[in-house]
Design a protein around this nucleic acid. Structure first.
Length: 455
RNA sequence: GGAGAGGUGGCCGAGAGGUCGAAGGCACGCCCCUGCUAAGGGCGCAUACGAGCUUAAACUUGUAUCGAGGGUUCGAAUCCCUCCCUCUCCGCCA
């Protein structure tokens, strides 16, 4: 979420910068809502002030021993007569306006950092560097589906159990998958200073809102509804009669939960509604979790193989840092993810996403793309972003600054790496003419010393 | 699943319709005293939003916030309803 002050002070400037990422900010609507908000808020607060003042005076008189029928009290009661109804109406209007403003704000994406290249699509992304040598084969390179068929990659069984976009791994391949995740976790905890965390895979709506998946991207999520009894409350009034309660009594958003699309959600939300002491910064966490994505709208794309699945594993790096440090932290985090590819000796390139290709919450994103021989191209294997205060503002995630005042944190995260896609990359880059796959050296300790996967 | 107890500021904890943004304590900050590692005294110390002033900050002022939402009332931390969460005991369970 953007700072509403920024929108008030420099609406045109914000709109111009959002336009570079293809977002049309409805400035007229914003200004209209703001004008209404201002009028109604002032009126509401005036009424509240009047109510408080008179109530307080009544209280003073009553405290001094005056009864409700005494003249002083009676005068005040008359003065109050019309205020509660007017106030109720004003508060209702104010609530509606503020909801509208909130809804408008919640779907505005982050402002791109000034260094982000302006562009419309991934074609306009900026290649930062290429690392590693692309392998040359003296045979026709197979893709991971063909290679995996003999090694224990089974889509038919997965389709029977669940459906399309799932996979079953068996034997050495399942172990290789586990080895990759463990190798990544160990590297980040032992060499890069991250604290390993185990987190829930089901989260509530507040968490999804905090990192920006809600309200805009609900369609991308798997949702779990809990069946609960909704009671209708009844209160007894002073006259002994029943008072009807709100129609929505008992309806609560906590009844819906969501499967995490990335560990970013639970891990980043650890600091939601927290004020962390300055000396705890930077906070660096790594988590290995499954990720669940509905992939609605991607029908027909990457239908072959395990590139795009409803369920995949990822080792995720998350940092909460001082605002002054966040861009330095992003470079470091990117380096941490790259280290994994380097240790696996997989060729890759780093790309800086253009304004049009960045995710909703990011101010700056680097993608790491790994070389896939069978596709003869680089494919995304990691995405590392600085969200600045965008998520922190939604989450009210703060730290106490040197002056002792709470200030919004900056949050970052990056895949380090996507395990499924790394498995694909290992299979394709380490394949042999006979269809076997050499185990990368760094993984062998995790594979019981095994050097090669064969059928 | 059954029974019970709770959710108050950074933390602990009082308050049980009015003068309560909330006693007291701890922690923290500044000052004083003392001087030797511990103690005494004073003052300050929530957050968000609005308005005024302003380049901005500071400041002044208003409002909201005692788990969340709703209701009763001239007035709710306090009474009523619903929900959420935590803890204890029993049951079940990986």
């Amino acid at each position: 979420m953007l700072d509403i002050q920024l929108l008030r002070n420099d609406l045109a400037g914000v709109a111009a910068r959002l336009a570079t990422r293809g977002f049309a900010l409805d400035t007229t609507r914003f200004q209209g809502l703001e004008a209404q908000r201002k009028t109604i808020q002032i009126r509401t607060q005036e009424l509240q002030a009047a109510r408080n003042r008179i109530s307080k005076m009544i209280g003073q008189h009553r405290g001094a021993g005056h009864g409700p029928d005494d003249e002083e009290v009676g005068d005040l009661m008359r003065e109050m007569q019309n205020i509660p109804d007017q106030l109720k109406e004003a508060e209702k209007q104010l609530g509606e306006i503020q909801n509208e403003l909130q809804q408008l704000l919640e779907v505005i994406p982050n402002i791109p950092h000034s260094s982000v290249p302006i562009g419309k699509s991934e074609a306009d992304n900026l290649e930062v560097r290429k690392v590693g040598n692309i392998p040359q084969f003296d045979f026709v390179a197979k893709d991971h589906v063909d290679l995996g068929e003999k090694l224990g990659l089974d889509f038919d069984t997965a389709a029977k159990i669940s459906g399309a976009r799932f996979s079953v791994l068996k034997g050495g391949l399942a172990r290789l998958h586990r080895a990759l995740a463990q190798f990544m976790l160990d590297t980040h905890t032992e060499q890069h200073g991250y604290t390993e965390v185990y987190v829930p895979y089901l989260v509530n709506a507040d968490s999804m809102r905090g990192t920006g998946q809600l309200p805009k991207f609900k369609n991308d999520l798997f949702e779990i509804r809990r069946e609960t009894f909704i009671a209708r409350g009844v209160a007894i009034g002073p006259d002994g009669n029943e008072i009807r309660q709100s129609e929505t009594a008992g309806l609560d958003r906590a009844q819906e939960m969501f499967l995490i699309p990335t560990a970013e959600v639970p891990v980043t939300n650890m600091v939601r509604d927290e004020i962390v002491p300055l000396e705890k910064l930077p906070m660096k966490f790594v988590a290995h979790t499954p990720c669940f994505r509905s992939e609605a709208g991607s029908y027909g794309r990457d239908t072959r193989g395990m590139i795009r699945q409803h369920q995949f594993d990822k080792v995720e790096l998350v940092q909460m840092v001082h605002p002054d440090e966040s861009y330095a932290a992003l470079e470091q985090l990117l380096g941490h993810a790259e280290t994994i590819l380097q240790k696996l000796a997989l060729p890759y390139r780093v790309v800086k996403l253009c304004t049009g290709d960045m995710g909703f919450s990011a101010a700056l994103t680097y993608d790491i793309e790994v070389w896939l021989p069978a596709q003869n191209t680089y494919r995304e294997i990691s995405s590392c972003s600085n969200f600045e205060a965008f998520q922190a503002r939604r989450m009210q995630a703060r730290f106490r600054n040197a002056q002792g005042k709470p200030e919004l944190l900056h949050t970052l995260n990056g895949s380090g790496l996507a395990v499924g896609r790394t498995l694909v990359a290992v299979l394709e880059n380490y394949q042999q003419a006979d269809g076997s796959v050499v185990v990368p050296e760094v993984l062998r300790p995790y594979m019981g010393g095994k050097e090669k996967l064969t059928s």
